[in-house]
Design a protein around this nucleic acid. Structure first.
Lengths: 356, 356
DNA sequence: GTGAAAGCGCTAACAA
DNA sequence: TTGTTAGCGCTTTCAC
């Protein structure tokens, strides 16, 4: 039983590896970090001993000594919908091979909570910060500015970023959908969205939407708001409600694809001709929903791409030093009319309302 | 301009606050941690100075000194599907108010990558580890055992946990669905699942499923496998393919709700009578999909609850010291027959096949 | 190619 | 109630 290794009460340290291998702590450290010149023999021995012991370096000590942390703070409002996981995947992909690790915090669409989460994350001195949206409490903005690391605000470009920004213009996304709807000849437009006052992106889409409708001589004829999670059922219920109240609506614009999909299912069940009698559109471009009875008109929010580009900016800055110039990347929200928005006069004039 | 504070090149330290407030570093530290007895006056002054300066404590240094870290490592296979975000929400909820913060790593259903992610996270000396599944590389198991912190393996209880475990029996989930199917009188059963050999839970469901079918004198008549993301479209395509090959199938069991939903949409489009001519069932109990043309038969995997309970175990152990006894929590997978599985002889015998 | 000494920013333990 | 001292485990820097 000579080699039985009892469960260590005290975590192993460099010193343990040093003593067990007969090499100085310094050299062990070099081996473990693949740094400096270490002879092949020494290197092999140290590696073997470290592995045998099951040594795991202590990054807390390492980071304190080196003043460098391989963490990137990522702050997003929610994990519940299908939007942000996709962004995270993009970030993961963009950080791949850089040695940087994302650490995710959830702000719950609540500025006060966002502030807390940010403070918490900053106290780990991350090498970069990726944060959703451009709207933050004053204190949060101050922290971001004072942090002296690259900050990338993502998703939205309509506003003043603290540092870099990668996103789409939600105003533009809303406006383009309004134009497509107007050009296709729809006239009685309903809007279905969230009550969440802190969902600034949904708000901006709505503003862009109504603005462009107005320029086309149209307006939102009725609205329906919801709170809580957005599932198919919610979409069905809202659609039933708004159509009962305003049966003459001929287009419904939803603030996300999931409730739009529910609305589509409702319309199909109700025997409404889509997109003839009534048109529908969502937002986000959720790939998982491809395969609905009709392809949903929507705007691709470029979620993955946003994550990738934001991560790339952080990675570059971590490499080049924090002095890098801020980047402002506005991706183009890609509208797809699918099969729920008439392909009326899509080639037509940009702003003028055109009948079918 | 006397109060203009230039962007600091060097991050602020306790010492800065100490000097600016004329109080010792130690007292500042006490104030900032709400610890020890500090006079109200001193406390107020320190707080004011810290805020004015924009001081953010350095947790790296703090953790090194105190040998305590308020981080919980969470390792899950993926963020792409709708399964794990829900678990994360549960973990977040369970950690609420404990001062512990989850840190998420993604293992991509790849044991080697899981090992790397685990190593990386352990190097931050987290106060607890929540990791999906019971199958890990030998090295990973060794690390988990050596880490000397609470480990909770989640999702699955069919196997030997390293420490605590919270999950459901996927074998049982598969078996119960098979029994319900057999009892309802279906006879020609098709299975649609993932090719991923590392999705052990899907594999166990399949094993439980075929085992129980066999006991009912039935077998899986045809199978269809897919790789890549699971969306509605994938479900449609797979369903079309398997039904073209085996038109006489009268039940399809899918490895998740999303492809099952796609299958349902296909069957509806194809004019197949569901659940009369053909029955369908998925797995997970995805709430967002409530609202499909027919309520899908599925098994609720208790995802949120699993997250909450796992977090509670970690929180309790962090409180009580690491000596806490391992907990083994097997939740009951809740089968719901919805409207896509005939309510044939559900009250009938447990194992005996019963015709409709 | 290797080692010794100093210190990263904070907190535990003790002293006053 | 407040302050002093001695590290936490590693990496930096410099010496050999």
């Amino acid at each position: 039983m000579t080699h039985a290794s009892p469960r260590p009460r005290r975590p192993l340290t460099l010193r343990d590896v040093s003593e067990a291998s007969g090499v100085s702590e310094m050299t062990v450290s070099r081996v473990l970090r693949n740094t400096g010149d270490v002879s092949g023999a020494t290197r092999a021995r140290v590696l073997a001993v470290a592995k045998a012991l099951g040594y795991v370096p202590n990054k807390i000590a390492g980071s304190l000594a080196s003043q460098r942390v391989n963490l990137v703070a990522v702050i997003i409002p929610s994990l519940s919908n299908m939007v942000f996981p996709e962004v995270l995947n993009g970030i993961n992909a963009g950080l791949e091979g850089t040695g940087l690790q994302p650490v995710v915090g959830v702000s719950r669409y609540d500025p006060a909570h966002e502030e807390k989460v940010l403070y918490e994350m900053l106290s780990w001195r991350p090498s970069g910060i990726i944060i959703a949206g451009l709207e933050h409490s004053q204190a949060a903005r101050a922290m971001l500015r004072a942090a002296d690391v690259s900050v990338v605000e993502i998703m939205d470009v309509d506003g003043e970023p603290v540092d870099s920004v990668v996103g789409i213009s939600h105003r533009r996304a809303g406006a383009e959908m309004a134009q497509a709807i107007a050009r296709a000849g729809y006239r009685r437009i309903g809007f279905l969205g969230t009550t969440m006052p802190m969902d600034h992106r949904a708000r901006k889409r709505f503003e862009g939407f109504t603005g462009a409708l107005a320029r086309a001589g149209l307006e939102v004829a009725d609205q329906e708001f919801y709170s809580g999670g957005s599932g198919l059922l919610k979409g069905r219920e809202m659609t039933r409600a708004i159509l009962r109240r305003s049966p003459d609506l001929d287009f419904l614009y939803y603030s996300n694809d999931m409730i739009a999909a529910g609305g589509l299912l409702h319309c199909v069940d109700a025997g409404l001709d889509v997109p003839g009698r009534i048109g529908l559109a969502g937002f986000n471009g959720i790939e998982l929903l491809d395969g609905l009875p009709l392809a949903l008109a929507t705007t691709d929010a470029c979620r993955r791409e946003i994550g990738e580009k934001a991560a790339a900016i952080i990675a570059r800055a971590a490499e080049a030093g924090p002095a890098a110039r801020p980047e402002r990347i506005a991706l183009a929200p890609r509208l797809s009319v699918g099969q729920t928005l008439l392909r009326g006069a899509l080639g037509g004039g940009q702003d003028s309302p055109v009948g079918v």
